[in-house]
Design a protein around this nucleic acid. Structure first.
Lengths: 79, 79
DNA sequence: ACTTTACGTAAAGTATACTTTACATCATAA
DNA sequence: TTATGATGTAAAGTATACTTTACGTAAAGT
């Protein structure tokens, strides 16, 4: 709780959605299904600072074809 | 649950513990303290497949001076 | 013997990631 | 007007990461 994870999920997803010729793959629902999570989980993540499990982070990075650090940024709130 | 995270924590920690001139920094307890978790968490991780939060994975990578993928491996058990 | 250090185990509790269900809004199109 | 697709919100439930406490063992030093 003295550290925060921020992410660029929303922007990355919309970019994919615009580029893709299968845009429905990149809706919240499409993403969720392919990740094996629910749409609520996507919504929570896109909403702001959210600390997912490592396995979900890996799955996302794989789907987007980038590294974890390209989606998530770790911010240290050191005292 | 159709995917698994394996890690090399134990080996990496012991290596650090042997190299270091401050070995107590690399005991389970030393590691735990610096990560802001308990020794039980370290034990659970070293014990086998464990799916930590992304923030903990980032902290570990920073402490060990490596990338997340150098500690954790994502294995897809796809159907 | 005894103390200390590092590691192991077990069991119950807390926090939070993630689910489930249900209903609402808004744009677009028939 | 009615339908459909995509997003938003809210509330209660489940799974599991992580904590807390406590006790056990075994090695190494005194």
């Amino acid at each position: 709780m003295n550290s925060v994870i921020v992410n660029k999920l929303r922007d990355l997803r919309e970019a994919k959605r615009n580029e893709s010729n299968n845009p429905e793959l990149w809706t919240q629902e499409g993403l969720a299904t392919r990740l094996g999570v629910t749409r609520q989980t996507i919504i929570s993540m896109e909403k702001g600072t959210y600390n997912p499990t490592l396995s979900l982070a890996f799955k996302l990075a794989n789907l987007f074809g980038v590294r974890i650090e390209d989606i998530f940024e770790y911010r240290d709130e050191k005292k």
